Computed example of a mutant assay.
Amino acid sequence: MEQPLTQYSRAEYIETETGNKVSRKSVICGSQNIILSGKTIIQTGCVIRGDLRRAGTGHAVVIAIGRYCLLGQQSIIRPPHKTYKGVFSYYPMKIGDHVMVGEGSIVEAASIGNYVEIGKNCVIGRFAMIKDGCRIEDNTVIAPHTMVPSFSVYSGNPGRLVGELPECTQELYEARSKELYSKFTAV
């Protein structure tokens, strides 16, 4: 399916040297602890919390985001947390390449693999691990500590396996994310 041309105002987005397009109306906390690999689109109202600290170290955790990702409007990306021996602490988060996070979704996963599509209004629980080539349907809640296997489709509340994707999913998601990026143009 061909992606539509999406135009945005040059005044509304900042484009970095590595091709990231970041809305001025997004909330990026602790930007020194957020690694964008390049050609990622961060849309209006997206919140990324790179300012949350790991207990005892005084250092904020790192959020690493791969290439050709799309973080949708009003989505929230924050690192997972837990209390261990009475100490509350945040932990690093890694998001792979060609990942789409839908509008209004909240992500607290430990890791999201490459070629993953997370639908609108989803909740990805703390320390969940989503492997490569997965799709999380709209309005799905993935419970904390869930491991979503490669090439699977999850849906519902709580999220359950409802289907499988073919191995060509990686090529399809990669082509779609590159096309979406190329058609996200300034006017």
Rank of each mutant, 00 (worst) to 15 (best):
G102Y: 01
S75F: 07
K82D: 10
P80M: 08
S75T: 12
S89Q: 03
F88G: 09
K82Y: 00
L71R: 05
Q74S: 15
M100R: 13
R67P: 04
G72F: 01
L71K: 04
I76H: 03
H81Q: 14
L70Y: 06
Y90L: 05
L71N: 06
T83P: 07
I77C: 09
L70K: 00
Y90N: 14
I95R: 01
H98P: 09
L70V: 13
P92Q: 08
I76K: 01
Y68H: 15
L70G: 04
R67E: 15
M100W: 09
R78C: 11
Y84D: 10
V99Q: 07
C69M: 07
R67H: 11
H98Q: 06
K82L: 02
L70D: 06
G72W: 00
Q74D: 15
G102P: 00
V99L: 10
Y91P: 04
G72K: 01
H98E: 11
V99H: 07
I95C: 10
Y68V: 05
I76G: 00
H81V: 00
M100T: 12
T83I: 14
K94L: 10
Q74W: 12
Y68D: 06
I77P: 03
K85H: 13
K94S: 15
H98Y: 15
Q74I: 02
Y68Q: 02
G72V: 02
Y90H: 15
K82T: 03
Q74Y: 14
P80D: 08
G86Q: 08
Y91I: 03
D97V: 11
M93D: 08
R67K: 15
Y90F: 15
I95G: 08
L71W: 07
E103M: 15
Y90G: 04
Y68A: 04
M100H: 10
E103A: 11
S75V: 03
H81M: 13
Y68T: 04
L70W: 03
K82W: 00
D97E: 12
R67Y: 04
C69L: 08
M100Y: 09
L70N: 11
E103L: 14
H81W: 07
V101P: 01
C69F: 11
P79H: 07
R78H: 12
I77G: 05
M93S: 09
I77N: 02
S89M: 04
M93Q: 13
Q74F: 14
Y84M: 07
V87T: 14
K85Y: 12
M100V: 11
Y68C: 04
G102H: 01
Y91W: 10
G86H: 09
G72L: 03
G86M: 12
V99D: 10
I95T: 07
I95K: 01
M93V: 07
P92F: 08
I76N: 04
Y91T: 05
P79Y: 06
I95D: 09
C69Y: 09
G96K: 01
G72Q: 01
M100G: 11
I77V: 15
S75C: 15
S89G: 05
R67I: 06
V101E: 05
K85V: 06
C69I: 11
R78N: 07
T83F: 06
G102W: 00
P92K: 06
G102E: 01
M100Q: 12
S75E: 04
K94N: 13
I95Y: 10
G72R: 00
Y90C: 11
R78A: 14
C69N: 06
